[in-house]
Design a protein around this nucleic acid. Sequence first.
RNA 1: GGAGGGCUCGCCUAGUGGCCGAUGGCGGCGGUCUUGAAAACCGCUAUGGGGUAACACCCAUCGUGGGUUCGAAUCCCACGCCCUCCGCCA
Length: 431
Amino acid sequence: MIDLRLVRENPDLVRASQRARGADESLVDGLLKADTARREAVKRADDLRGEQKNASQAVRTATPAERPAVLGRAKALATEVKEAEEVQRAADAALRAAHLRIPNVVAGEVPPGGEDDAVTLRTVGDVPTYDFPVRDHIEIGEALGAIDMERGAKVSGARFYFLTGPGALLEFALAQLAISRAVAAGFIPVVAPALVKPEAMEGTGFLGEHDEEVYRIERDDLYLVGTSEVALAGMHAKEVLDLSAGPRRYAGWSSCFRREAGSYGKDTRGIIRVHWFDKVEMFSFCRPEEAQAEHLRLLAWEEEFLQALELPYRVVDIAAGDLGTSATRKYDIEAWFPSQGTYRELTSTSDCTTFQARRLSIRYRDEDGKPQTAATLNGTLCAIARTIACLLEVHQRPDGAVHVPTALRPWLGGVAELTPGMTLAAGVPPV
RNA sequence: GGAGGGCUCGCCUAGUGGCCGAUGGCGGCGGUCUUGAAAACCGCUAUGGGGUAACACCCAUCGUGGGUUCGAAUCCCACGCCCUCCGCCA
């Protein structure tokens, strides 16, 4: 949630942000009203409680003669306090509801517009050309025995798949490469739970407008995460972190689950848009003043990873209307998909400023030793299924083989190519 | 799933109805002393909310939520978490 002080002191800024997102401006006034109402309710309840405290002290010191009168007054006040507390509870709840409805304030530099208005910041690597008919990742993957869509559908339904043989090896190789690079860069590797409590889900902003995207295990009141960001952010909920030495960085591996409601007909073929995939996610906790710089660092690490995979890509600055609830700014990296003749999102990094940390109560101590709300940022290092799809397509060869980028080879037994009918034992590191 | 035990201020600990936000120790911070340090001594050492120009001040918080009472860390109920034992299990 956003900083209430900001709303009080600069409501126009928040209104402008709502407008930029194409969201409801009047929510800001609703929030201001709820804030005022709550403060009045709190004041009244506090004052009454104070009076009642004194009154019950007086009971103790009262002489036997005074006692009945004093006791009567205390009893009356007790009733009033109860009523005032009821009002306060309602006001608290109303404020919280209004507060939760407002997404993070959009950064000033964010491009205006919606989904189609992302601004390309740079394009890296040459778009490959092929002197043979280009195949998509499913054709290539099935020929390799790497992807089995049909049986995925048989077992789990649409948008599920099996990674088999070389495909399964690719998954682990990518995960190893991603984790290894992250650790070398100073990240703490984490294997995170994929099932979380509602607080973690709400705290990271996934239960707002987009809650139909999330799988819910109603019976146990748990949610399947759409990204390990949820578990990583929740990991330090209600804690005061030591951020004096700089950002605290985690690289989390977990499965991710997405209902893909409302994306009927989009990417129905292949493993680009699926209900389940595994992902290595970067997550940073830092002081708010460090967040912008940290955001660029996350982006740089994402770019380096794609460069290591020898994939051509472009970096786009996401427009205001397309930002997630928690983000003040977001950069996507889109990699080239030859079968589609276009760039498609492979990674994404968001600066959530203090928005998530405020909900989750994640703090640090400033120079004066006072607790302050931290900032959180997240970025994809490797969304494995989609990355496999891209790799297969970009690195395809006319004979159905797939070139293995040098960086990935140590995790694939040193092989330079994946080939149909390859010996799988050759594709693993020495044992 | 069944049976017990426990959850107090960073850590340990006192507190079984009335100025208890809460005792004492450790740790941490500041000071006195010292050439410097140690020791000793003195002081400080929570968080959130309201309030203020800023102080003052007020309210809340003893795992969480209810209840009893004029008054609850203390009594009652429910839940959560941790530990021990039994059963089941990757």
